[in-house]
Simulated assay, not measured.
Amino acid sequence: MRGGYAAGQSGRRRYVALGDSFTEGVGDPSNVLPNGVRGWADRVAEKLAKAQPGWEYANLAVRSKRLRHIIDEQLEPALGMEPTLITLYAGGNDILDFGTDMDALLTDYEMLVARLAGTGATVVLFTGFDVKVSAVLEPFKKRNTLYNQKVRELATKYGAILVDYWCFDAYKDSRMWAPDRLHMSKAGHKYLAAQVLDHLDVPHKISLKQWEPPQRMTMREWERRQRRWVNDWVLPLFGRKLRGVTLGDSLSARWPQPVKVPRKGGLKKLVENQQAMQ
């Protein structure tokens, strides 16, 4: 495995994931796992444990969190866990906020990366994907480009592994996205898990789903789908912004403390075992 990341000096193997909905797993529903989602990070943890028994995993990510929340709420707990592997995606929600100071955001982001890299753990960073959702979001494209440039620079500066999500052509297929068009679907999360595992040189058998070419929609079908998307997702999103509330306000981290990932059965097996003991 690349870079000797697999274990600390004591032989400890501990993976801690930080971030927002991207890392929490939104878009990949589960009726068993905490917060009702699974996601790419859970899949990475399970493949790590399968390749090398003894891996522990914590996921502190919560949907809708801004960078300042991740720094205030997730950084110190993560450092206290003494991880040997860290994944971080943060700042995407800030990019979509009106009035965000990008210089201040990227300064804070570098501080966070520096703190995490200072632990000696292997750090994995992600660029942001240029989601073709709507012309409404096109003004934010420049911010995303600036963010991605900074992430690439910091990955080099701090010796982090870069998963350049922006470059993955597979995500041009709408089926890689959830109905809200902002979060990955189950297929999207599985593919990203495979990309992270490949960057870490961890063996796996996850492959890109092979679909038939999408059927061409009529103009009426396209308009109907657009209206449904606006009503179901866009208007509620802007309504929450106006009220100053988020979907993550009532949620806690899915795996707030390191759990030992079963080599067989994965995290679902862990939850089943926990429920059986109650």
Results as ranks from 00 to 15, higher is better:
Pro77Tyr: 12
Ala78Gly: 05
Leu79Tyr: 03
Gly80Thr: 05
Met81Val: 01
Glu82Trp: 02
Thr87Ile: 07
Ile95Val: 12
Asp97His: 11
Phe98Pro: 10
Gly99Tyr: 05
Asp103Ser: 03
Asp103Pro: 00
Leu105Thr: 07
Asp108Trp: 09
Asp108Thr: 05
Tyr109Lys: 03
Met111Phe: 13
Met111Gln: 13
Met111Ile: 00
Met111Pro: 00
Leu112Ile: 06
Arg115Asn: 00
Arg115Trp: 00
Leu116Tyr: 14
Leu116Thr: 14
Ala117Val: 08
Gly118Pro: 05
Thr119Leu: 07
Val124Asp: 05
Leu125Ile: 14
Phe126Leu: 03
Phe126Ile: 04
Gly128Ser: 15
Val131Lys: 11
Val131Asp: 08
Ser134Pro: 12
Ala135Pro: 13
Val136Asn: 05
Leu137Val: 00
Leu137Cys: 06
Leu137Asp: 06
Lys141Arg: 15
Lys142Asn: 02
Asn144Asp: 07
Thr145Tyr: 13
Leu146Asp: 00
Leu146Gln: 07
Leu146Phe: 00
Tyr147Ala: 03
Tyr147Arg: 02
Gln149Thr: 04
Lys150Cys: 09
Lys150Asn: 10
Lys150Phe: 07
Lys150Pro: 04
Lys150Tyr: 04
Arg152Thr: 13
Arg152Glu: 12
Glu153Lys: 07
Glu153Tyr: 04
Glu153Asn: 06
Leu154Thr: 14
Thr156Cys: 08
Thr156Phe: 09
Thr156Gln: 13
Tyr158Ile: 07
Leu162Ile: 05
Leu162Ser: 06
Leu162Gln: 07
Tyr165Gly: 05
Cys167Asp: 06
Cys167Glu: 01
Phe168Thr: 14
Tyr171Asn: 02
Lys172Val: 08
Asp173Glu: 01
Arg175Glu: 15
Ala178His: 15
Pro179Lys: 09
Pro179His: 08
Met184Phe: 15
Ser185Gly: 13
Ser185Val: 11
Ala187Ser: 14
Gly188Lys: 02
His189Leu: 09
Lys190Asn: 15
Lys190Asp: 07
Leu192His: 01
Ala193Cys: 15
Ala194Gly: 13
